[in-house]
């Protein structure tokens, strides 16, 4: 049962294609398991359609239709096969299948981090923490999203288990700690280009 969801602001930005790619990966991971948020996304996309429909038209070039029809006659170009990430595939929701990953790096006892390729705006990666560890998440640089893929953590009064998404705005203090007896695997992303604390150290080690 998923209890924690992204905000409407985040889902709408995602549906509008305006969320930085790194944050979008976390939202995609959550959406895969959350029918309620898929419904919200569908609604936001319908809003996008309505907003577009209501826009004043901008004239296309005169031969635009003829050009497109001429291209439509030609066979579709073949798309090159994807280079797929390997590793956590069994735990990753399918929307993340095609992501490319860096190597796992140990960043502290009981903590490791694996960078994901996700564009120049923001940082995304997988974070694995052993039971009892505090996740090194500190939002100093804009929005921070974390989606639990396996295990669970507790932050204040809230418990986050598989599928749950934690959304933390800049400057909001929090102290997520892995509970239970299994490691917690999360996909995390922040809006800022620089990570802080332990993850920042990992980022510098990776030359990111």
């Amino acid at each position: 049962m998923i209890r924690h969801h992204p905000s409407d602001a985040t889902l709408t930005a995602y549906a509008g294609g305006m969320l930085p790619e790194a944050l979008g990966l976390v939202v995609a991971a959550h959406l895969y398991g959350c029918a309620a948020c898929r419904e919200t996304r569908a609604m936001a996309e319908a809003v996008g359609g309505a907003v577009m429909e209501a826009l004043p038209p901008t004239a296309m070039t005169e031969d635009a239709l003829a050009l497109v029809l001429a291209r439509a006659e030609r066979p579709m170009p073949r798309v090159a096969p994807l280079s797929r990430g390997e590793g956590e595939r069994s735990l990753l929701p399918p929307p993340l299948d095609a992501c490319s990953f860096g190597p796992w790096r140990r960043i502290a006892p009981g903590l490791r981090f694996r960078r994901m390729f996700a564009g120049e705006r923001g940082i995304a990666g997988l974070l694995e923490a052993m039971p009892g560890k505090v996740l090194p998440l500190h939002s100093h640089t804009g929005l921070e999203l974390t989606c639990v893929l396996g295990g669970s953590f507790v932050d204040g009064a809230d418990r986050y288990a598989a599928g749950d998404l934690a959304e933390v705005d800049e400057g909001q203090p929090h102290r997520p700690e892995v509970d239970g007896s299994v490691p917690c695997l999360c996909i995390i992303a922040t809006e800022g280009v620089r990570l802080h604390g332990l993850l920042g150290v990992a980022q510098r080690l990776l030359g990111g």
Partner: peptide, 26 residues
């Protein structure tokens, strides 16, 4: 949805539309 968007108060409609127009909306 189109109808409901048209009925939103201006300040809310502005924020909704911005989600589709502005890069880095927040």
């Amino acid at each position: 949805v189109a109808e409901a968007v048209a009925d939103l108060p201006a300040e809310q409609a502005e924020i909704v539309r911005a989600a589709f127009f502005l890069d880095q909306p927040h």
